[in-house]
Simulated assay, not measured.
Amino acid sequence: MGTKEDVLNKIQILITNHFKTPEEAFAFFDKDGDGKLTKGEITELLKKAEISGFIRGIVSSKLVEGYDKSKDELIDWEEFKMAIAKIK
Rank of each mutant, 00 (worst) to 15 (best):
A27E: 15
R56N: 12
F80A: 07
I75K: 14
E5N: 14
T3H: 07
K48N: 07
L14S: 12
N17A: 13
I51A: 06
E23C: 05
Q12Y: 12
R56S: 05
D76L: 09
D76S: 14
L37A: 07
I84F: 05
K39F: 07
M1I: 06
K86N: 12
L74E: 09
A25K: 10
T38W: 13
I75Q: 05
G53I: 04
I15T: 15
T21E: 06
M1G: 12
F29G: 10
K31L: 10
S60M: 02
F80M: 10
I58H: 11
S61E: 03
D6R: 03
K69C: 11
I84H: 06
T38V: 08
E65P: 00
I87D: 02
V7M: 00
A27K: 11
V7F: 04
I11G: 05
K62S: 03
D72V: 03
T43Q: 02
L14P: 13
A49P: 10
M82I: 10
D72Q: 06
F80I: 09
I58A: 14
F19N: 13
E41K: 05
K71F: 01
K62I: 03
L45C: 09
M82G: 05
I58R: 15
D32A: 07
E5F: 01
S52A: 11
F19L: 11
N17P: 02
K88M: 01
G57M: 06
D30L: 07
K4V: 04
F19V: 09
D30F: 09
K4D: 04
K36N: 01
V7L: 00
K31A: 14
I87S: 02
L63I: 14
Y67I: 01
